[in-house]
């Protein structure tokens, strides 16, 4: 597993993780895709089953990784591996999708250790849909876990919106940078 410092993008299949990473990555993101399985195969010809990878090069040469986690739950085991050396997490939730709160709970459960350490930002896509719950319901769901996380309505196809998500996640990571040693060390190898 790549040991560089990184930010993670997670969320259900098709929510826009690949799109978000592509909008801010310096290079064309590398997407490891395979045929979908189960019911998903009927609606999507390919799905990200391993991970998406993009990167941002800083002026001093350090490279920050941008990882999109697997969309399908059968690859959840990779979440634990990806959390290593992560500095923050963007959880993308499709507001129009039935069970969007359940989706959120799944990621709050799966990334609990990372969220407790670095925080996370929740990006609500298709937020104008009337099918989803009230925005406050997401805040309440997060509060039940004892977290206070920003919930940002966004159009993930817009770079400006992806930057807003990154601004939020960086703002949460910034105090860790202040508190010496709280962020993962730069990879020496």
């Amino acid at each position: 597993m790549d040991r560089r410092r990184k930010f993670l993008f997670t969320g259900p299949t098709g929510v826009g993780k690949t799109t978000a990473i592509a909008l801010i990555s310096d290079d064309e993101p590398v997407a490891t895709e395979m045929a979908a399985s189960g019911e998903l195969a009927a609606t999507k010809t390919t799905t990200t089953t391993a991970l998406d990878f993009g990167q941002v090069r800083l002026e001093d040469g350090e490279v920050i990784g941008l990882y999109g986690t697997p969309g399908q739950q059968r690859f959840d085991y990779m979440w634990t591996l990806l959390q290593e050396r992560a500095m923050g997490l963007v959880i993308l939730i499709d507001h129009s999708r039935p069970g969007s709160l359940t989706d959120l709970q799944r990621y709050l459960d799966g990334f609990g250790e990372l969220i407790a350490q670095t925080g996370a930002v929740i990006g609500l896509t298709r937020a104008d849909s009337e099918a989803g719950p009230a925005i406050d319901a997401y805040h309440e769901c997060v509060a039940e876990y004892g977290y206070m996380l920003p919930v940002i309505e966004c159009d993930i196809r817009r770079a400006e919106d992806v930057r807003l998500l990154m601004e939020a996640v960086i703002s949460m990571a910034e105090p860790l940078a202040d508190d010496q040693g709280a962020l993962p060390e730069e990879n020496e190898s």
Binding site: R5, I24, V56, R57, L58, E59, D60, E62, I64, R163, L164, M166, E167, I170, S171, A173, E174, A177, L183
Partner: peptide
């Protein structure tokens, strides 16, 4: 340091 550089690189803040 890191966060300031990243913020600068992404053009946020």
């Amino acid at each position: 340091g890191l966060m300031a550089r990243l913020r600068n690189r992404l053009g946020v803040g």
